[in-house]
Nucleic acid binder design. Sequence first.
DNA 1: ACCCAGGGGCAAG
DNA 2: CTTGCCCATGGG
Length: 275
Amino acid sequence: MTVLPLPEFDLRLTLLSGQVFHWQEDGAGWRGVIGRTAVRVEQMAGELMVTPGAEKIVSRYFALDHPLDQIYATFPDDEFSRGALAACRGLRVIRQPRWECLATFITSAMKQVSHIRAMSLALRARFGDPIEGSDVAAYPEPERLARVTEAKLRTCGLGFRAPNLRATAIAVAKGSVDLEAIAGMETDRAREELCKLPGVGRKIANCVLLFAYERLDAVPVDVWIARVVRAMRGDGRLPDLEDYSREHFGAYAGYVQQYLFHHARISKTLPARSK
DNA sequence: ACCCAGGGGCAAG
DNA sequence: CTTGCCCATGGG
């Protein structure tokens, strides 16, 4: 293991915040796969122990270059955002490989974080390429998933998401949607492109834009964020929740959203059923 | 036995 | 343009 000096960072918080779903706890550290590279990371005080040779990949993946101080300075000044920031300091919005992020969030629809994780690990184990030095396989490429039957995908617990994952894998494999080309597009057009894929609507497209395309102002609105924004607004009439979030959360709205999401989920103080 | 989960898509109003 | 309903599965 080599040592990486660290800016403000909380590895555990970052890995448990519902952006990525395959990392496994290993003693005081974590084992995972970044693309096709097996990695072990362990956080000490002010530094990160990293598998030798993976330093660059790791610092890019965990976005250690994001200027957290500047980002925090843009957070809105209300009790919810302040509370989320106090609870989640050091959480970073990471940079994930595009396809595995897209595919994973297609399987995330109406699923709890723990189960998204189970599906992701099952898909990797059954269809992914084994990675030397890792007991977690690479996420299966679109070309591979395109050749898997819907019935086999269902054995990984995908349920009604199975045909969507399969159809999206086929579309990406044959190039009708080009995931690399999307990186060069302005955000609204990039979102439009992603939404052409079966099983991808606004929420999942925004997850992919935020976690795989460095669009730190993209705001995925799920049931938790909906609750938080409603609580922020009181009983007044509701605007479009995504518009409201982008306008009030600032230039790094996606970061604010991620902190609010994770804080709400771990503290569970919000009413589940309020409309 | 319920209720809920990082939704999407399509029909109907 | 909005709302209602179904899609399948596991956990609390």
